[in-house]
Write a protein that binds this DNA or RNA. Structure first.
Lengths: 217, 217
DNA sequence: ATGATTGACTTACAACGTAAGCTTATGACG
DNA sequence: CGTCATAAGCTTACGTTGTAAGTCAATCAT
């Protein structure tokens, strides 16, 4: 009955990877200590030898997802670097949509992502941003990327109330909303992301040039 | 022993308000059917006469928080309107920081906020944005506001590992990160929000003028 | 060989969401 | 006034959860 061969020992690493597997295939609320243990052929309580508690597993999930982000390639300009980073972050988040709620609870910047932060800061500082501006820029970019990805890709459970209301109530009272119904059909959420990303970058660039101009006179 | 006087009857409204009270003072994970019932002097199961289940309560919380957003005042330009809306949304979210995780799971636009959406769309369309651009603009703004507020105001439980790492490891390996340590002390997250908001607005405005120019030639 | 350490398993408990059934107050209608 | 339907509360019960506490077998240093 018992797992016959000498099994490889448990570890934080293996636990997190098993947990990520469960979350990816069954959703965030599917993980319980017993479920993760079962995935590893182990009792729930055995996990406590390697992780402090369930919250620590969620923290770890957040961490290993973020660690999937590829190292930044050498970019020509800070604009390109920021854009690349934003897209890379979005891709990582989209790869594990069920973990997205985690990013709403935990601080976005973590030791795992510090390399990316350092690289981005370096470029921004050299481009002429002050330390504070560079910090703001990064935080604001992350906020946008995470915010937009969470909004668009959080797996919505099949609630039936919210959808139909649009077509019915809105014709005369909300003409502009009604107008969107047709648009929504062919609306591309990736285009929407790029739309926001470009706006953000353009705004940051404008700020930088204005800043340089005011310093020089 | 029993609650003596004829008590006023339960209702979805009362349940949600009680739940919001619990969440505001004790945090999101403090709400359980029994806890909310206790708040109203009622058994847990009685709540099921007015709400479908716990998820419905969370949906309702989301809803009544969003409903606190004040009606938009008549704004001079779409820029001012967007800025006002963004700040108003942020204020509402900040007023109930414990509910912020809810905004990561649920769709941002809800029947409760449709009036604001309609008003904003009207202004954007009149300013020259296409229907799709107006939709993108709104979604992107909401994503930024929610994303940034969640990142900055989600009540972080007192985890002790993440903080001290900064000062230690970063001096030579991460000089730019290290540079931030001093900045962080006097860093103002509201300024940071305004920084991002202005960048976003500037970028959107640039897009609009470019669009008008290209249509005219 | 022996003793300590590690890491698994077992048991147990309180709290959770909620299904099912029961009880009581309200109000319509003969 | 009596009857009875409906509504809205209460009670009990079940399965699942996170995890504290205790047990036991394997590994390893001496």
């Amino acid at each position: 009955m018992r797992q016959s061969n000498k099994r490889e020992p448990l570890s934080r690493e293996r636990i997190l990877r098993a947990a990520l597997g469960v979350v990816d295939s069954e959703g965030l609320e599917a993980i319980s200590m017993r479920r993760v243990g079962q995935e590893l052929g182990v009792e729930a309580m055995s996990l406590y030898n390697h992780v402090a508690n369930k919250a620590a597993i969620l923290d770890g999930l957040f961490e290993i997802v973020l660690a999937e982000m590829p190292a930044a390639t050498k970019a020509a300009t800070w604009q390109v670097a920021l854009r690349d980073n934003a897209r890379a972050l979005r891709l990582v988040l989209r790869a594990h949509p069920h973990t997205l709620p985690l990013f709403a609870t935990r601080p976005a910047v973590t030791p795992a992502s510090i390399i990316h932060v350092e690289a981005a800061l370096e470029l921004l500082r050299k481009a002429g941003f002050s330390a504070d501006e560079a910090l703001c820029t990064l935080q604001v970019m992350v906020a946008f990327v995470v915010g937009h990805t969470v909004a668009g890709y959080s797996p919505t459970r099949p609630e039936e109330e919210s959808r139909p209301a649009y077509e019915q109530l809105s014709k005369q009272d909300f003409p502009r909303v009604h107008e969107l119904v047709a648009v929504l059909a062919r609306h591309d959420i990736e285009k929407e992301f790029e739309f926001g990303l470009e706006a953000m970058l353009a705004g940051l660039e404008a700020r930088l040039t204005r800043r340089k101009a005011s310093r020089k006179e």
